[in-house]
Write a protein that binds this DNA or RNA. Structure first.
Lengths: 139, 139
DNA sequence: CTACTTTAATCAGAGTCTCTGACTAAAACA
DNA sequence: TGTTTTAGTCAGAGACTCTGATTAAAGTAG
């Protein structure tokens, strides 16, 4: 089995389950919206930064933020340090979703560790962290 | 850094580079088309099977196969064992793309091994193969 | 200070991907 | 034979993403 599929299959499982948990908790967010949402920092993040982090164009990021804003999950506030820019911030309404996602992620990691063992899980994480050094275009 | 992103970043790099290599070799295929294409077996595969393997609906798979067919990369032939079914087969035109993808993949794996070391690469593969046992819905 | 360049964001339009629901035809089964 | 299941298609809509052009603010060189 090729390494691409080996990386992708667990990733997709993780993403699907987290989305399901968030949806079950009553948050109506799509996958693309969630990918943007999780990149927003605690003090707000500029659209351009979000676009880079999520690997989409500014237009796409703007489109998704528009939807998130309409749904009340984010708000845009002026950036005090730059008159052109605005900061996208997570609203109180969306704050509750973060721990839901975090808990589901922890649950999944625990399941994985149970199956492959603590040692292998540690090796997996170590290898991936090293691999990200050469494959992440934003570091 | 969360495990999801750790899995996704190298995956995306792999996918992007393979797509770039295939495109550079003169094959005009989209990512979604490629995901279907790589699931087609040597003797042809049914649409329904492709849909399951690629994790999309039959309609979506059909839509992508239509495009691949128009571009001359696949053909549909009757399934001799089932009058309702048709086998999607890779045409000669598309055969050349497979080694291009394979070579790029091997090149990337070699680079990764160079960076993280042979030992870690082995551990990574071992851990992922074990992980796929519990995360692959199609096995 | 002024003119030029860059940067942040948006507007407009199009192409691609994916889905739900309804349907046809062949196969499998009771 | 009649019913149910399976393989695939048709129709329509929604979601995602892109390229190109534009506006406004900031930065920079003279």
């Amino acid at each position: 089995m090729n390494i691409g599929l080996l990386l992708y299959i667990p990733y997709r499982e993780l993403e699907n389950r987290i989305m399901a948990a968030v949806t079950a908790a009553g948050y109506d967010v799509t996958l693309a919206q969630a990918r943007v949402l999780q990149r927003i920092g605690p003090d707000g993040t500029r659209l351009t930064e979000l676009a880079e982090a999520a690997q989409v164009t500014k237009q796409t990021a703007g489109f998704l933020v528009d939807q998130l804003e309409k749904a009340g999950y984010v708000e845009r506030v002026p950036d005090p340090t730059d008159g052109r820019a605005r900061l996208v911030r997570i609203t109180e309404k969306a704050q509750g979703a973060l721990p839901v996602a975090g808990e589901e992620m922890a649950r999944i990691e625990a399941e994985w560790e149970q199956h492959i063992g603590k040692r292998r899980m540690g090796q997996l994480r170590e290898a991936l962290e090293k691999l990200v050094e050469v494959t992440d275009p934003y570091r």
